[in-house]
Design a protein around this nucleic acid. Structure first.
Length: 243
DNA sequence: ATATCTGCCCAGCTTACGTCA
DNA sequence: TCTGACGTAAGCTGGGCAGAT
């Protein structure tokens, strides 16, 4: 599930739900299904036949006997998973560090060196690129959430300070000036949310301001701002406290 | 010169298997 | 031993690109 802030203004969250498959499950039955454009290369690849890894070093790939196939669902030998050896993974990683893509010659050479099929090397690089870009995206999201959090914390601090100042002054609530007739609007009230113990809704004017940032009414309170992040913050705190 | 076809490669999503806590 | 989460090899689809026709 990916949680992506759509934009910095409203911080709506996009939640992609896994399971809505666009490709119907096709159990590899040994016959080349030949769906994709690159099916030609796939057709001759028997994934159940683990490529021999020479006695060269350490562990070997898991090997499967041909007649060993456990009874799968729906006939045909079930897909078996190849595990790359540490040495294979190391060499692939090393190669990936040098180049994130391979030309056909490099692919062939690497496949020969690793005693894998070119297709397997290709798949490994594809998956590696995918996980890398996913990682980068996650890092960006993390950074964004960090910034948002610090922004929220900062605003929270400011609001608390403002509350304390107002309490100390023991004066009436801030006056909101109508942009239409320049007359004071009904006085605002600061309320404390009983659940989160934070100042929540000041006035309807502020709520209106959040909704009509462009030409809406202005207020004299410091919560009035054009900063989209703060607007988003207001929305969030309202939704939290109005439950 | 242009349109169409074909093959190749890639990204993105998904499935299925192996491993591990 | 069972189970769910997670990592990952591989399948599938759709799109872009280049070369041939």
């Amino acid at each position: 599930m990916a949680v992506l802030p759509n934009n910095s203004d409203s911080l709506e969250l996009t939640i992609s739900i896994p399971g809505s498959s666009s490709s119907p499950p096709l159990h590899s039955s040994g016959e080349g299904v030949g769906g994709g454009a690159s099916s030609g290369a796939m057709r001759d690849l028997d994934i159940n036949r683990v490529p021999f890894v020479g006695g060269g070093g350490g562990e070997e790939c898991m090997e499967y006997e041909e007649d060993e196939s456990p009874t799968g669902s729906g006939g045909g030998p079930p897909r078996k998973k190849l595990r790359l050896t540490k040495e294979q993974s190391r060499l692939l990683e090393e190669s990936f560090r040098q180049n994130h893509t391979l030309n056909p010659k490099q692919k062939e050479a690497l496949a020969m060196q690793l005693k894998l099929k070119a297709r397997q090397v290709e798949v490994w690089f594809q998956n590696r690129r995918a996980s890398r870009s996913k990682l980068k995206q996650t890092e960006m999201e993390c950074e964004y959430l960090k910034r948002w959090f610090s922004s929220l914390a900062e605003q929270n601090k400011r609001l608390q300070k403002e509350v304390e100042e107002l309490r100390a002054m023991k004066v009436g609530p801030p006056t909101v000036i109508s942009p239409h007739n320049s007359q004071p609007l009904p006085a605002s009230t600061l309320t404390m949310c009983p659940r989160c113990e934070r100042v929540t809704t000041t006035t309807t004017a502020i709520a209106t301001h959040v909704g009509q940032d462009k030409d809406g009414p202005t207020t004299t309170t410091t919560t009035s701002t054009n900063n989209p992040t703060l607007s988003a913050t207001n929305k969030v705190s309202f939704s939290l406290c109005m439950q």
